[in-house]
């Protein structure tokens, strides 16, 4: 911060404390009042919508409602074939890049591994969680899971394991909280990119993927 900005900080904090009828504000986080730091560390949940016990069933319903397609696979070794089949059936023919986290699979030789460069038509990524409440996939950025794969390609294929399905957004956030370090980005994606900015009529593929496809596997992801 420049000295001007330091002054701005003091001015804003001073105005707030004056507005709240306090003599002065705290200078640093070490002086946080106990009730405030308690409030932050308690992670208290608010009322959550009831969503029933069938998390996977609800997830699939919600995903389909936001135009994501879901197929069930038996094992991780089926992923490459399922991707090939999906692309063939959708008529997608072009460069593909997968997350480094999935690099060990038996991809065709021309498949890219890494972040998106903007030329690929399709990406394949793992995810941190999927949320039954909303039908979202939660994607945490990491060296092995670059975030640009979620946004640049036209088609985004996500590998999801049943045990990654959580009930509420709060559960996915709690999973992120346990990551160390905190990922730079946690992206909840709930269907292909859309816009209603022309006459409030929904059009798909505004900036990000036009298609999203979920490969649902049993059990837990590999560690």
């Amino acid at each position: 911060m420049t000295s001007g900005e330091l002054a701005a900080r003091e001015r804003v904090l001073g105005r707030i404390s004056a507005a709240l009828g306090r003599e002065r504000s705290i200078a640093s986080v070490d002086q946080l009042p106990a009730d405030v730091s308690d409030r932050i560390s308690r992670h208290q949940r608010h009322t959550l919508p009831t969503i029933g016990d069938d998390l996977v069933g609800r997830l699939i319903t919600q995903m389909e409602a936001v135009l994501m397609s879901v197929v069930r696979l038996q094992s991780r070794s089926d992923v490459v074939e399922a991707v090939r089949f999906y692309c063939a059936s959708e008529g997608i023919d072009g460069p593909m890049t997968v997350s480094p986290a999935l690099a060990d699979l038996d991809w065709p030789a021309e498949t890219g591994v890494g972040a998106a460069s903007g030329v690929e038509l399709t990406s394949v990524t793992p995810c941190l969680a999927a949320v039954a409440e909303t039908g979202s996939v939660a994607l945490a950025s990491h060296a092995a899971t670059p975030a640009t794969l979620n946004f640049l390609p036209d088609n985004h294929i996500i590998v999801l394991y049943e045990n990654q399905v959580v009930a509420h957004v709060d559960d996915a956030l709690a999973k992120m909280r346990d990551l160390d370090p905190l990922p730079r980005a946690l992206n909840f994606v709930t269907g292909p990119s859309r816009t209603g900015d022309i006459e409030q009529t929904i059009e798909i593929g505004a900036h990000g993927p036009r298609r999203m496809h979920v490969l649902l596997l049993p059990g837990d992801p590999p560690v």
Binding site: Q62, V66, P100, G114, A115, A116, E133, T134, G135, S136, S141, H142, A143, P146, A147, T148, V169, L173, M176, P181, L182, P183, R184, A185, L186, N187, F188, V189, T190, G191, P192, S193, R194, G196, G208
Partner: peptide
């Protein structure tokens, strides 16, 4: 806002790229 249960992109972000990150 729009009558969606969740917006298509809801992202939480903080800070520059972490060590080893390929993008950001």
């Amino acid at each position: 806002a729009t009558g969606q249960h969740f917006s298509n992109y809801t992202s939480l972000m903080s800070g520059p790229k972490r060590e080893g990150d390929l993008d950001g």
